[in-house]
């Protein structure tokens, strides 16, 4: 696994270096202007976040029901990335909103939903850190419940927001934007994979270190 770190890191770095060129060359959107370019970072961040939620939830379920510590380590890595990419989305979202609606935050359904998921997974990290002995299981329960909560958050927040409908600038992709968009998605997913493997590897080594400490004492 270690062998792929270097090539993957180089690849991701090159892709992110070239990304501004792709984004700059994409067609200029007239209503939103330059701010529309945020889109190429904003949406891929969501995708990475949801991948994180999924991996964290499934890994935690495996840890709870099968007692698989490796799955728990993967879940912990994914939980941190969920919070990281969620934060990217939550920062770029209001930048878009400022231009589209004139306010930084106007309880847009998707942003609100992301904020809730962010809170759930910050809770996950907090309980893992401060839960005391057995906190891995407490965190695992939080992650499983958080994943199961996604459809409910989605439905309730959506209906809640449509009760007071407001005109919003729905982001639509014009022709010629797809190339840059998919390029960004691929870059983000590769970055996500890279960070996940590094973080997972670190956790594995930490567990191995614990094991060696225990073996040393014998």
């Amino acid at each position: 696994m270690r062998k792929i770190f270097t090539p993957l890191t180089v690849l991701v770095a090159l892709m992110f270096v070239y990304a501004p060129v792709m984004i700059a060359n994409a067609p200029y959107e007239s209503t939103m202007g330059l701010v529309q370019k945020i889109f190429y970072f904003h949406v891929p961040a969501w995708w990475a976040m949801f991948t994180g939620v999924l991996i964290c939830g499934i890994g935690s379920a495996m840890h709870l029901f099968r007692r698989a510590p490796a799955a728990d380590r993967l879940a912990a890595a994914a939980g941190e990335l969920t919070v990281l990419f969620g934060a990217i989305g939550l920062v770029t979202g209001p930048l878009w909103g400022r231009k589209a609606w004139g306010v930084w935050w106007q309880w847009d359904a998707r942003l609100t939903m992301a904020l809730l998921l962010e809170l759930i997974f910050v809770g996950y990290l907090l309980v893992r850190k401060y839960g005391g002995p057995g906190s891995d299981k407490l965190g695992a329960a939080m992650a499983v419940f958080g994943m199961a909560n996604v459809p409910f958050v989605y439905v309730s927040v959506n209906i809640w927001r449509t009760v007071h409908p407001k005109t919003s600038v729905v982001p639509t992709l014009g022709p010629g934007m797809f190339g840059a968009f998919w390029y960004s998605v691929l870059s983000f997913m590769l970055l996500f994979t890279l960070l996940l493997t590094i973080r997972f590897h670190l956790e594995q080594q930490r567990a191995e270190l614990d094991r060696l400490y225990l073996a040393e004492e014998e």
Partner: peptide
């Protein structure tokens, strides 16, 4: 039974 690096019961 281990709790992290702490060995509560060993073999």
């Amino acid at each position: 039974r281990h709790f992290g690096r702490r060995r509560a019961v060993s073999h």
